[in-house]
Design a protein around this nucleic acid. Sequence first.
DNA 1: CTTGACTCTCTAGTTAACTAGAGAGTTTAT
DNA 2: ATAAACTCTCTAGTTAACTAGAGAGTCAAG
Lengths: 143, 143
Amino acid sequence: MSGENLLKIGEIAKQTRVSVGTLRYYETLNLLQPIQRRENGYRYYELDAVKVVQFIKKAQSLGFSLEEIRQIIEVRNYGKPPCELVQNLLDKKIEELTTQIKQMISFKAELENYRETWRINNLNVTYKKTKEICPLIANLKLI
Amino acid sequence: MSGENLLKIGEIAKQTRVSVGTLRYYETLNLLQPIQRRENGYRYYELDAVKVVQFIKKAQSLGFSLEEIRQIIEVRNYGKPPCELVQNLLDKKIEELTTQIKQMISFKAELENYRETWRINNLNVTYKKTKEICPLIANLKLI
DNA sequence: CTTGACTCTCTAGTTAACTAGAGAGTTTAT
DNA sequence: ATAAACTCTCTAGTTAACTAGAGAGTCAAG
């Protein structure tokens, strides 16, 4: 038995560092389907399942919801999906990403500005031995 | 009465497009405090409260949790906070942002790659009048 | 052949970030 | 002076993404 190339849920879990419970949860959301169930009821997955899980995690870390990820994966699993819808979906995601990246870059610049202000002030404090530890903070203007 | 320069919760809500309920919720999380409560129990906010709410929304849209935002704001409200902690907090955020931005850029490139693949394939389909609508999708390899 | 590690299903709990609604007092516009 | 609009508190419900646990069957190693 089991001379085949399939993985049980625990092996997927180990390889992806995603809990068994979470993998089963993904299944209920149609994010990840085992390729077969055997008589014992066990889930058996293709090797590719590991990649799917990794994709999910990656997309998730970038702010995609599981529902959005499901749509992307669904589209990918479809033999013959409506191409226009597919493209529109992707286009939307790409545009969102573009905007988000821009925002993050400018937000980062703002935080760096805070930091720089503090750093300079800290130097002053050191030299002048002011009683205030971080006097600038009170004067900070929110973005 | 009310010749002063303070805003009631509804005005903050209107200006920020954040619901009154959410503003009160923010208060329970120590994200936003009215500058005073009058005999009637009403909350009265400084004009700056609008900026605070906008800051919250912005930071939130960039993936910061309300708890993280609370920490940033807390630090900002402190008269004399421990500068090192403050700086470490900021440094951590900036580093996180840097990583995230990098990831998003490469993820975006990957999605663009998908799109491009599809676009080319679509052209082929059009020219060849293949029966398959989007044959490439089945062959897509997950990232 | 038994023990420990896995697996199953199903129900319920958790956290974050809200939203909704009841019941009551307050302000404002006419 | 009264109705509409606003405010208050408090409790409870919602969604997303999980996590935990009970109760039971299955597999693998010694």
